[in-house]
């Protein structure tokens, strides 16, 4: 952004041609179909959870890059727009990845109600906490 490059206002020539857009449209549809197919037949092709997450996420990022790059003319525009998008994306994903790690219930799974267990790295033998919702007295055992 050092020199002020002449802005050619409205009439900037359209960058892609119709055929280019049609090819891209087809590729986008193919990727979406591929994602659907992977998800639909995840058992038959025996894909594990982690690899599925990895492939599906990378496929969607490919689609993301295609739409942003060519359909939104990001590739032909000023570099500052690219910084804007990637800055926002990077900061957002970094912050919420950190938030997810902090908030993720490490030892307990909410579904099985374990979240009310003592969050003890070494699980003590019997100290299930009588959560205030659980009825009944604690068994009075001599010290």
């Amino acid at each position: 952004m050092n020199t002020q490059d002449a802005a050619h206002g409205h009439g900037e020539k359209a960058h892609g041609s119709v055929t280019l857009y049609m090819v891209f449209a087809f590729v986008l549809c193919a990727i979406t179909f591929l994602e659907w197919w992977i998800f639909k037949h995840r058992n038959s092709i025996g894909i594990t959870n982690h690899t599925m997450v990895f492939t599906l996420l990378s496929l969607s990022l490919v689609k993301f890059a295609m739409v942003c790059g060519w359909y939104m003319h990001l590739r032909y525009d000023h570099k500052s727009l690219m910084k804007l998008l990637f800055g926002g994306m990077l900061l957002a994903s970094g912050t919420f990845l950190a938030l997810g790690i902090i908030v993720h219930p490490k030892e307990c799974d909410a579904l099985k109600g374990e979240c009310f267990k003592i969050r003890d790295p070494a699980p003590a033998a019997d100290t299930t906490v009588p959560a205030e919702a659980k009825p009944g007295e604690a068994a009075p055992t001599a010290p």
Binding site: Q4, A7, L84, L85, M89, A92, T95
Partner: peptide, 21 residues
């Protein structure tokens, strides 16, 4: 403009960065 990008386009990209969050 300094960046050669029209103000409204620039503002829309800023809105997109905000919507990322």
């Amino acid at each position: 403009t300094n960046t050669g990008v029209d103000n409204r386009k620039f503002a829309m990209w800023t809105l997109i960065a905000s919507e990322c969050f």
